[in-house]
Design a binder for these strands. Structure first.
Lengths: 141, 141
DNA sequence: GAGGGCAGGTCTCACATAGAGACCTGCGAC
DNA sequence: GTCGCAGGTCTCTATGTGAGACCTGCCCTC
């Protein structure tokens, strides 16, 4: 726990450095979070964690992503070295995406987040119902 | 590792259930990820992890968030029970936000992600440079 | 040998979301 | 009375996203 929290302290140093300087300080953590924290990246990484998959397989697995965003997200992940892209010279060429070692290394921290999400979902859902049910200052005692 | 990866397997089951059914299957993991995976939530949670803070402190800590998004993100986090909001009846009323126990429980998985981001940033940065430097099939050998 | 189909995209347009920054509210100090 | 402050809300514009038509090679069928 304290080991993990030291990461937060390290991050906080970037924050306070930034707050104190005139020019914004570049924070690697934010950079990375902006990347994998978008709408589709984690979802695609999780999907590829099961096995390498082709473009259209991914599209079927994550049905509500548009081709446009699928292409774009995959390209960004490839750019960041998290996945690799292989083109096979079949009749209509097929393209397979799979996790790189760097992408693999992200699985463990990501899985702990998924695990949290799955275990705490009922709490979150309950909190939402409670919040929406008490629109102003209605307090149950 | 295998314990963590079992979370991924569990998640994959939602995915394949969804792929097979006609009606989309509601996936709690996606629900939660959509929430904390937005541009500002993790950043604010990390900032609040250090200590409870007031609206304007948060605004100073995360300088490039707009008031609009700060308000909205805080409200969403409160709705999900991750943070609590206390109004103090000072002369101009001040408002303090702090992590709820549920929010605290998110710190550990989040910290491991932060830690990953911090340690792997140089790899990611290198991959980006490589990708941008090789626009087509130029390969350094 | 013309037409159709498939994989993996790109392009265009319409709409939703985010950011900038002006404004609001209540109150105490000057 | 009017200034300033905390914590917002509102409006306008810029940016991002989704839907879905279209494109490109190539093979297969007719």
């Amino acid at each position: 726990m304290s080991a993990a929290l030291s990461a937060i302290e390290r991050f906080s140093r970037y924050q306070s450095d930034d707050a104190q300087s005139v020019k914004p300080v570049h924070c690697p953590v934010r950079d990375v979070l902006d990347r994998i924290g978008d709408k589709w990246s984690i979802l695609l990484l999780m999907t590829l964690a099961m096995r390498p998959q082709r473009f259209s397989e991914l599209h079927r697995a994550v049905r509500d992503i548009s081709k446009r965003m699928l292409t774009q997200t995959l390209r960004d992940l490839e750019r960041d070295g998290l996945i690799t892209r292989h083109v096979f010279p079949t009749k209509p060429p097929s393209v397979e995406y799979c996790l790189s070692p760097l992408g693999q290394s992200l699985l463990e921290p990501m899985a702990s987040l998924i695990d949290w999400a799955d275990r705490r979902y009922s709490d979150i859902h309950a909190a939402r119902v409670r919040f929406d049910g008490a629109p102003s200052d209605v307090q149950r005692s």
